[in-house]
Design a protein around this nucleic acid. Sequence first.
DNA 1: TCTGAAAGGCATACAAA
DNA 2: TTTGTATGCCTTTCAGA
Lengths: 156, 156
Amino acid sequence: MEEIDRRIVTLLATDGRMSFTDLAKETGLSVSAVHQRVRRLEKRGVIRGYAALVDYDEIGLPLTAFVSIKPIDPSAPDDAPERLSHLTAIEACHSVAGDESYILKVRVASPLALEELLQQIRASANVSTRTTVVLSTPYDYRSPVIEKELGGDVTG
Amino acid sequence: MEEIDRRIVTLLATDGRMSFTDLAKETGLSVSAVHQRVRRLEKRGVIRGYAALVDYDEIGLPLTAFVSIKPIDPSAPDDAPERLSHLTAIEACHSVAGDESYILKVRVASPLALEELLQQIRASANVSTRTTVVLSTPYDYRSPVIEKELGGDVTG
DNA sequence: TCTGAAAGGCATACAAA
DNA sequence: TTTGTATGCCTTTCAGA
């Protein structure tokens, strides 16, 4: 029951365009039952959306870096994520524990573009930056192995 | 022409399940022309696949962390990615410039699970670890804004 | 929550330009 | 590389249990 939802999410995480017909075959349910379950998973927010996974080298953004940021003025309100969200080179923004406040993952075309981006980050959010350049990516976006208990109602 | 491919990739990066019919409407091409272009983009590796984006809180993996690793024995061959790939909690592995050799992104159920994972990482790859816990994620998996020149044959 | 049926829409292949 | 057509499959909805 809950087991089938895990299976569906795993299958779609691996192949986001899998058809309902194939999902039905894999789960042993009817097509319409799978259909309802997927729609419910989408509505509950378990599935947040679907994306094509892109090769960043191929689309002209071969340079990836992690940029850790720290506020210049620690007493100022921390609205860095909103201040930075207009910079489309930023793929992700994580608030983190530790010496620095956020880790950004960025994708740019060149070292020069990275330099310009760092200036924009510093200026937009009034932060200092520490940058770690990615040399290669053995793997990324691996599909999760889903825990047995879905949702927040874990009692065990 | 190349412009249309950028558009198609952008649309599919944002909605990985968009139909060819809708892609055709958005690009002004016929359905079969879009179909061929998507298949070509997949074959060229510009589109590497499709994935459902999952809410990690909802699937029982609410704790995200970045784990930087450094070999204990720097003279030993560096095969950390292969040695670690069996650990499914590791979502991504990036080789990086700087003091440490790799940055791992991991997803676990709890602090205890993180502790156990770190032990497995250290044992599997003979490395020391430095862990940065993610407190919240303002945004992640944002779709790229694609450069005008696709592929490696940039002449301008 | 499931199944099965009915509808319309969509994917895919193909001929032609 | 494109368009249009054709066929069959798939998605989606609905009734019923």
